[in-house]
Design a protein around this nucleic acid. Structure first.
Lengths: 333, 333
DNA sequence: CTGAAAGCGCTTACAG
DNA sequence: CTGAAAGCGCTTACAG
């Protein structure tokens, strides 16, 4: 069945489509449409279940009320939680979210930006992959709000919301050192993206500031797309070949692989062997013993993202360059 | 800066927009455009970075290459995983996903269906809430593919992909009984949605078939939107007031609350007190001791969903009424 | 081999 | 108080 259009409503009500459009957009008063007409038209709209075609509206007005969200992987609890919070807040303001996952693949990220652009999204919220600077620069010319989160591409002047990873990582390592640990391992992934390299920087800085020696063999960088069981066996090797009395994992999924490895080699987590994971999860709270974790302020991140975007969207304010860096919380268990 | 339109390209190439459009849509050969013209136009397109406005294209062609996905809560790992898999598979076929979470709120679900409809999505993948039958019936008239997953609204004749929850739950309880358990508790939520009530049905059926007595005081139904700590204390009460030698949790988040409760009252999970959780998660594998779980076939669910939708979308096949019920896997640990 | 024109369903400046 | 008309950026039947 054909969907109703504004024409059908106009015909039924014996008015022009202009009148219907004004009523639809709440401009009945402003445009001095008589209440009689307004009432009949509204009645017909309600009874028929007519809803304006947003695609046509978008073509005409140039905006879509859709915000594009590009994340690394929506099934990562960190991104899923952020997406959920952003979605809820955007929804209240009449915006919808289209999202997509890049898998940290530059080609896919470029492609997604292109698709969002061709769909005329009103704004972009991006967790960028390396190599998309050029595409983003081109995007800037459209004059639509763009915001990076989680990680930054520092050469570009894009508003950013993220966590102070250096400090979080630093504090975690410092807490190890305070408890007398000297052989502190760091397990991370081999991505050159800001939020990961910063975690490494914090680790190195704490080691240095506290006059420990940096031991390269205690740093394990696993390939990003590696199967979890391969990661587990690499961590096992790390723990068997070296004296390690504390270990910091740079992501939640690495920590999970680590816990499996620790379990499989029957290593005991206690005062002699401490563990901290980046990004808190239920699994860490419930673990025996409970695992300490660095908790990013998800709610605050989402709040800042959506507020920045909405303020640019509504106030047509000049593109700003806010860099919002929020503190993480170290939860010792 | 104004975005390039097909007109700009046509002007630059000294041809009509018709010609550009044909080339854009790969119809150059079919429409017998000379290779010379095709080449210059393609060169200009590439150099200028022009991408057609999909909104205009959608208005003209009537389809958007967007599939609407409505879930209960995108931050629930079950939905996040499904969404991820669907997204990946849809992407390969040139479709994008718009998603939204209902929170199992009928009003929000109705609203979302309306918004997706007004945005002309090409198809709907819905995890339905109660009370939206009427809206879905209206939707059917648009002749766009609709598919339910996870839970069904049985009065409607909508294709469906889900898990055999009755059987999964039955097998879980049966495994308890085989190990000699007689006082088997069931913790669930108070939602009257199919996938939840079926889990309860499986529990009751197993109890009955094995000639145990159904003990109402061993069944705890917690409110859907209740805070986790309240749930924890209700579970504690259940365990303290009754003799319970096995417990089945109907969702993964209830199981997590349950594990916290068990820990807090220092109850030990062993051969004398067994636990099974619905939907497997890392936390269950890594728990000490490991927690048995019912694993839904996420990959198969996603695969079936997207295949059904795409086949309806491409073959313009008649609306079918496939009901695909996949088996879950009981993982005893 | 190529183009002029209609039309998708809206919004809005302009006219009366 | 209300309407006719232009135009958003495309696609496509039709004409030559």
């Amino acid at each position: 069945m054909k969907r109703l259009s504004i024409k059908d409503i106009a015909k039924q009500a014996n008015v022009s489509i202009t009148t219907v459009s004004f009523i639809l957009n709440g401009k009945a008063k402003e445009k001095a449409i008589s209440t009689a007409v307004t009432d009949t038209v509204e009645k017909i709209i309600k009874e028929s279940g007519y809803r304006p075609n947003e695609v046509a509206r978008s073509l005409r007005t140039g905006n879509t009320k859709i915000i594009g969200l590009i994340v690394e992987d929506i099934s990562n609890p960190f991104f899923a939680s952020i997406a959920r919070l952003i979605e809820g807040k955007a929804y209240k303001k009449g915006y919808k979210i289209i999202y997509a996952s890049t898998d940290n693949d530059t080609k896919k990220a470029k492609d997604l930006i292109g698709m969002f652009r061709s769909r005329n999204v009103d704004a972009y919220i991006i967790s960028p992959t390396p190599g998309i600077a050029e595409d983003v620069t081109r995007l800037l010319k459209d004059n639509k709000p763009i915001l990076f989160f989680d990680r930054n591409l520092p050469d570009l002047n894009i508003p950013f919301v993220g966590t102070n990873h250096i400090k979080a990582s630093y504090q975690a390592v410092e807490s190890f050192i305070k408890r007398g640990k000297k052989n502190i391992a760091f397990v991370t992934i081999d991505l050159e993206v800001q939020q990961i390299t910063e975690r490494f920087d914090g680790y190195k800085k704490a080691i240095e500031d506290d006059n420990l020696t940096y031991q390269e063999h205690l740093v394990l960088k696993v390939p990003f797309n590696q199967q979890a069981d391969e990661t587990v066996s690499q961590i096992k090797k790390l723990l068997k070949k070296n004296k390690v009395d504390a270990i910091l994992f740079s992501t939640n999924y690495l920590a999970i692989s680590g816990l499996i490895a620790i379990k499989e080699i029957n290593k005991v987590i206690n005062e002699d062997f401490l563990v901290i994971a980046y990004d808190d999860r239920d699994v860490f709270k419930l673990h025996t013993p409970p695992i300490s974790a660095i908790e990013q302020p998800l709610e605050a991140i989402a709040e800042n993202i959506i507020n920045l975007i909405l303020s640019e969207l509504t106030s047509k304010s000049e593109a700003n360059n806010n860099q919002i860096i929020l503190p993480a919380k170290l939860i010792l268990r």
